[in-house]
C-alpha cells in the first residue's frame, strides 16, 4: 500500500477485497454489510485478516463498532484512521508465543 491515504483509493481496495478475497457476491460500495446478511461473525474475522494483510494495520477488540464496519465507506475511513495512527504492523500474523 502506498503512502497515499486517499479515501477513494482505499475504498476501491476495500471493495476489491470484499469481492475477490472474501467472495461477497453482489457487494457494492453502498451495501450495508450487516443488514444485508452478507457477512456473519466468521466472515468478520476473515475480513479483519484481509484488511490487516492488505493495509498492514491491526484490528483490535477496541476497534469494534457497528458504525466502523457498516459499509465500504466506513471501513475505508477506519483504515485511513489506522494508517494515520501508525497502526501498521511489522509483526507476523500469528499469536506471540513466549
Amino acid at each position: 500500500m502506498s503512502g497515499s491515504h486517499d479515501v477513494q483509493d482505499v475504498a476501491r481496495t476495500v471493495l476489491d477485497c470484499l469481492r475477490n478475497k472474501l467472495f461477497l457476491d453482489g457487494v457494492t460500495a453502498d451495501t450495508h454489510l450487516i443488514e444485508s446478511g452478507l457477512i456473519d461473525s466468521v466472515g468478520f474475522i476473515r475480513m479483519f485478516v484481509v484488511l490487516e494483510e492488505e493495509f498492514g494495520i491491526e484490528v483490535t477488540a477496541r476497534d469494534l463498532s457497528l458504525e466502523r464496519f457498516q459499509n465500504v465507506g466506513s471501513i475505508s475511513r477506519f483504515v485511513i484512521e489506522k494508517l494515520a495512527e501508525g497502526g501498521g504492523s511489522d509483526k507476523p500474523a500469528e499469536a506471540v508465543r513466549a
Binding site: 485478516v49 491491526e58 484490528v59 477488540a61 504492523s89 500474523a93 500469528e94 499469536a95 506471540v96 508465543r97
Partner: peptide, 13 residues
C-alpha cells in the same frame, strides 16, 4: 508454553 495475546482480534479469537 504460554500463548500470549497479540492484540490482534483475528489472532486472539
Amino acid at each position: 508454553s504460554p500463548t500470549r495475546p497479540s492484540g490482534r482480534l483475528s489472532q486472539d479469537i
